[in-house]
Amino acid sequence: MGIIKTRDLIYEYIRRDEEGNVEGITRALDDINLDVKQGDFVAILGHNGSGKSTLAKHINAILYPTEGTVWVDGMDTAREEHLWEIRQKAGMVFQNPDNQIIGQVVEEDVGFGPENLGVPTKEIWERVEESLKAVGMYEFRKHSPNKLSGGQKQRVSIAGVIAMHPKCIVLDEPTAMLDPNGRKEVIRAARALNDVEEITIILITHYMEEIIYANKVFVMDKGRIAMEGAPKEIFSHVEKLKALRLDVPQVTLLAHELKKSGLSVPDGILTCEELIEALKL
């Protein structure tokens, strides 16, 4: 079994009006089956409200399935006795960098997780150092988080998770509030962890250029998995992606348009070099 596995996962919540009367039931996740292997880089793509964040919160046992099961490293997330172990194994980075940093100094924030786990003081310091180095934020360890850029804050958040020695990190739209430089920083950090530390990465996003490095992509819509495959396969369905409120990189779109005009260009072109190759120039 993989590090993260879900079977027939359904999540429903009850909508209530202002007086608290039941208005109806919303099915936020519908029949999700995932199997993520240790060391994978998985991207989950979807427009706002597609259910991707709800799915992410199941992996960290912040939400529990209404029906079906989620296993993290073989542990059923619905079983309370595993709660803390699951949260340690599957760390989570959230969207808003300001709302997840607890410490007033970078190093203290990174130490927060290990402190909660009851790690001895000396080891906390070692973990903090190695984690900050892993995301390239060691020189900022004495800084106040308020003085960092968005990308740097998110890297601190990632370090805070790494310090708990997880097997898997779920990044829930970590770049949605960042500028392009910040986005690159965060994605680079996530890729490095995946490559070097072999930590499983689950990246939730709606930026298409960020999923290019994933080995598997799931596209979500209305709580269901609408598409899955390697980035190349996903990007070869330009029209379908557009129907799902997503877009593709300009080069992919251009290749797609050229193909429609009769040129022999393969589907799912991801880079400029591939396009030139395809045009046989």
Partner: peptide, 27 residues
């Protein structure tokens, strides 16, 4: 309130469960 909500979730996700069993980075 939104921030408080987010923060609570982030703290729980990092295994915060009150003062019990906690060690200190800077005792």
């Amino acid at each position: 309130f939104r921030r408080a909500n987010d923060l609570a979730m982030a703290m729980e996700a990092r295994c915060y469960r009150g003062g019990e069993h906690r060690t200190k980075m800077k005792p």
